[in-house]
Amino acid sequence: MKKKRIDALNEKAKAIQRLADGEQPSAAALAERRMPQGCTTIFDTGWETNPRPTYPVGNCQASARDFHGCVGDCWWPAQMPDGLTNHREFDVQCPNVARDWRNLKYD
């Protein structure tokens, strides 16, 4: 794949780029309305998606609010402590993620 000469990094640059893309409709624009199914990577916890154009798109707001739902007993492969085998007492350590996140201890 050819490397792009100029790559939008922040949200503003991406918005400007989208504007430019809008003037020249492309297949990429059509793809935007597709609803992702299945799981996401790393900190994008869970399968859930969100069509609102705020950050993070396609994710819980904030991802901390989906942390416990992803811990262990749910099966999507988000990067979370495994609550069924290795971190069974995770809820004791961190019952309220927004408050207790500094107590998170898992490898």
């Binding site: 490397k3 000469r5 100029i6 790559d7 939008a8 990094l9 922040n10 503003k12 640059a13 400007i16």
Partner: peptide, 12 residues
């Protein structure tokens, strides 16, 4: 860095 819009790009 685009000064007027605070847009940020990586360039070659």
């Amino acid at each position: 860095f685009g000064a007027e819009q605070a847009s940020l790009y990586a360039i070659d």
